[in-house]
Write a protein that binds this DNA or RNA. Sequence first.
DNA 1: TTGTATGCGTTATCAG
DNA 2: CTGATAACGCATACAA
Lengths: 341, 341
Amino acid sequence: MTTMRRVSEIAGVSKSTVSRALKNPEMVSKETRDRIYEAVREVGYKPNALAQHFNSGKSNTIVVLVTDITNAFYSRIIKGIELAAQPLGYSVLLGDACDDENRERMYADMLHTSRADGLILLHHRFPFDADWLQTGTTKPIVSVCIPPVEPYNYPHIVIDNFAASREVALHLIKLGHRKIAAIAGQDNGQITKDRLGGLKRVLQERGIAFNNDWFIQGEYSKASGENAVEQLMQQDDRPTALYCFNDDIAIGAMKKLRSLGLRVPEDVSVVGFDNSEFGEYVDPPLTTVNQPALEMGKRGMEVLFGLMNGHVVDDCAQYKPYELIIRNSTAIACENDKKSA
Amino acid sequence: MTTMRRVSEIAGVSKSTVSRALKNPEMVSKETRDRIYEAVREVGYKPNALAQHFNSGKSNTIVVLVTDITNAFYSRIIKGIELAAQPLGYSVLLGDACDDENRERMYADMLHTSRADGLILLHHRFPFDADWLQTGTTKPIVSVCIPPVEPYNYPHIVIDNFAASREVALHLIKLGHRKIAAIAGQDNGQITKDRLGGLKRVLQERGIAFNNDWFIQGEYSKASGENAVEQLMQQDDRPTALYCFNDDIAIGAMKKLRSLGLRVPEDVSVVGFDNSEFGEYVDPPLTTVNQPALEMGKRGMEVLFGLMNGHVVDDCAQYKPYELIIRNSTAIACENDKKSA
DNA sequence: TTGTATGCGTTATCAG
DNA sequence: CTGATAACGCATACAA
C-alpha cells in the first residue's frame, strides 16, 4: 500500500501538507495542491482507513444486532439503515444473533472495543447484563420497531402497537367476528403486551369474551404459525379469526388451514402484521398492518447518528404511522362453525 | 476508555507485559499474570480494536456486496457467510448496491483503503473497472452463487446451472409440455446463459422448437414476474409452462396467472429457482431448484479466508449440489389451450 | 502557506 | 521472564 509519506516525497512536500491538501484543501496553495493531487493520482494513493479510524478514535461503523437476517421484515429495516448510513459516512456491520447469547454479547461488545461507534437493536433481548451497565458509560444505542427491553431505556423508533391492534380488532369485529385468536412470537416484551392488550381492550369495551386458550405464544416464523393453527383448531370452541403478530406466522397459519380443509377467508379470517412484501402475493392476499420498515430503519440511523455526535435525544420514543391494509384474507365471520362442538 | 497503560500501572508492570499476558499468557509468570488479570477486571479493560487493526494492518472485516439485501435468497447466503465469519474472527460489512454504481465502487474501494480485507460478491456486476485492475494487486475476492462476470476470473461457489436447467426441462417434458417459456432476471451473464442453454439443449435433443418470444428478460422480482406473464399470455401461441429463473419471478407469475383466471398447475405449470422458503407456502407449493444457500455462503467465506491468508486456490469454481424439488405447481400439460389461437 | 514534532494504543524486537 | 523502545499512517498543535 502506498502511504502518504510516499506521496509527499514525490510531490516534494511534507506529509502534513499532503494531509491538509486532502482534508482542508483551502489551507494549501493551489500550486502545491495540484502537485500533490498529481502525485496522488500517479501512485494511486488511497488513505488508510485503519489509520484514520485509529487516529480519530472513531470506527465510523455501527452494528446492527438482529434476531434473524433472513426475516424479510428485518431485512427491509436493515436496508433502510444502510441507506441512511452511507451518506452519513458510516458502514453497517451485520450482527445476526442466531439465537445465541454469546454472539449477542460479542457484537454488543464491539461498542466497548471501539470496533463500532453505535448499535441498532432489532432484537427482543438486551445484549448487555446489568453488570456492564454500571461500569460502562452510556453508549449510543437505538432500537427500531421494538420498544426497549423492560428495565432499560434507550431511543426507539416504533409504531403504536396498541392502537394498531385496536384497529385490527375493530376491523374483525365489524366483520362479525367474536372469537378471535392471537398468535404471538418469541417476545415477552412490550410488543406482545401492546398488541394483545389492544385486542383485549376492544373486546372488553364491546363486552366480548376473550378465551385464554386462544392466545398462543410461539415464534415469529411460518412453522410456528402452522403449529399454532394445529393447536387452535383442535379446540372444541374454535376461533373464527386469527390475529397473527407477524406475516410469517400468518402465512404458516394459512398453509395449515388449507391442509385442514379450511378456507380463508370463508371459514377463517387471517390477519398478519408488518406488511412484508409476500403478503400481497399469497392467495388470498393478506390483510395486515403496515410498518414503514424502510423509513423506520432510516430514522433509526439518523437518531443514532445524533447520539454518536453527542446530541441529546429528548423524545426517547419516536412514533411512525402504521396502516391497516385490508386485503382478502379477512371476511365476514362464518357462523356455521358450531359443528365442531 | 481505559487503555493498556492504565492496566500496567495498576498491576505495577510494563505495557509489554500486559500485552503478553493477554495474547501469550504462557510467556508470563503465573504470579504477574494473575496480578494483571486482576487489574484488567478492576478497570474493566477491553483492548482497543482500532489500535489492534491499525497495528496489524488487518481490519478483520470483509464486505459483502449484494444486489439487494431484501432478497430472501441473498439474505440466506449472507447468513451463511456470517455464520462462518464469526468463528474465523471476521466481521461482515453489509454493502447493498441498491443498483447504484457509486455505491458499488464505494464498497469495493474498502479493499483499497484497508477498511476490509476481502470481498464477497453477490452481485451481477463486477465493481472494479479495468483501470483499477491494472494498478492494484490482486485482492481476495470470492463470488457466491454467481459465476464471475465475463472478462474477469475469481473463485466462486456455484451450482451447475446448465445441468440443473436440464433437469427442469426434462421434468416439464416428461409431463408433456412442449411450449416452455423462460423468464430471466437482470443478468446477462453466465447464469442466464447456462439456464437458458440447458433448457434449449434438452428441447433441441428432443426436436422440440423453442419460440424466441417465449424468452423474457426482466428482473429477479415479483413485479417482473407479473409483467412477464402479461406479455406471454397476450401471445397467440401461449406457453403451457413457465420456467422462472428465481422464485420471486415465479411467485409474481403465479399471482398474475390467477388474476388472468388461469389455474396453476391445471392450465399453466410454473417452475421457480433457488428454493427460497416462501415457495413451500404459496398455493400451490412451488416446484423449484434448491441451491444450498447457507452452505454456499459458508463455503464462500471459508474460501475467502484462505485467500486472505495467502492460500492459492486451485479449483477456481467450486460446485455445490443442487436439487430439483417437485411440488404441486407443475403438472401434466393442458392441451386445450389452442383456444387462444 | 508550509514544515516539524508529537500522539493515538497496540504489538514486536531487542536487551537485560 | 520482563522492560524499554520503535513502528504502524495519519492528523494536529505549534513554529517558522
